[in-house]
Simulated scan of single mutants.
Amino acid sequence: MHCRKGCGACCVAPSISSAIPGMPQGKPANTRCIQLDDDNLCKLFGDPRRPAVCEQFKADADICGDSREQALGLLIQLESLTQ
């Protein structure tokens, strides 16, 4: 599966514990990443400063569902199960 252009759910729902440019303490769950632009695209895509966890994320129907709304719901649910 390829990422849905303009989804950005993986840049909102999960927490990220590593530093992100502009977010040195990482990002709490259900918080929009500062590097997500107005079109829900990562400003750090292809940039070596992009956190490894973001680089390693791969879209999958089981966690991305059929829409951005489903992806947000599924990722928020997964985040709550891993706390």
Rank of each mutant, 00 (worst) to 15 (best):
R4N: 04
R4G: 01
K5T: 04
K5Y: 05
K5V: 13
K5G: 04
G6I: 03
G6K: 06
C7P: 05
C7W: 00
C7E: 06
C7R: 01
G8C: 03
G8D: 05
G8R: 05
A9W: 04
A9H: 07
C11K: 02
V12S: 01
V12E: 02
V12K: 03
A13N: 08
A13W: 07
A13T: 02
P14T: 01
S15W: 00
S15T: 01
I16W: 01
I16M: 13
S18P: 00
S18A: 08
I20Y: 00
I20H: 01
P21L: 00
P21S: 08
P21A: 03
G22E: 02
M23G: 02
M23T: 06
M23H: 01
P24T: 08
Q25R: 08
Q25E: 12
G26S: 08
G26K: 10
G26Q: 09
K27T: 10
A29C: 00
A29L: 02
A29E: 02
N30C: 06
N30M: 13
N30W: 06
T31V: 10
I34M: 03
Q35C: 01
L36E: 05
L36D: 12
L36K: 12
D37K: 04
D37H: 07
N40M: 14
N40G: 00
N40C: 05
N40Q: 12
L41P: 00
C42R: 05
K43P: 06
K43M: 13
K43F: 01
L44P: 10
L44I: 03
F45E: 11
G46E: 08
G46R: 13
G46M: 09
D47Q: 01
P48V: 11
R49D: 08
R49L: 12
R49Q: 12
R50A: 14
R50T: 04
R50S: 03
R50G: 03
P51M: 02
P51Y: 12
A52R: 13
A52D: 14
E55H: 06
Q56G: 11
Q56S: 12
Q56L: 12
F57G: 06
K58Y: 00
A59T: 06
A59C: 12
D60L: 11
A61Q: 13
C64G: 09
G65A: 14
G65K: 07
D66K: 15
D66V: 11
D66Q: 15
S67M: 09
R68K: 15
E69I: 14
Q70R: 15
Q70P: 06
Q70F: 09
Q70K: 13
A71K: 12
A71T: 09
A71N: 06
L72E: 11
L72G: 00
G73E: 14
G73M: 11
L75Y: 11
L75E: 07
L75I: 10
L75R: 06
I76G: 12
I76F: 09
Q77D: 14
Q77C: 01
L78R: 15
L78T: 09
L78W: 04
E79K: 09
E79P: 10
L81E: 15
L81Y: 13
T82C: 09
T82D: 10
Q83P: 05
Q83N: 14
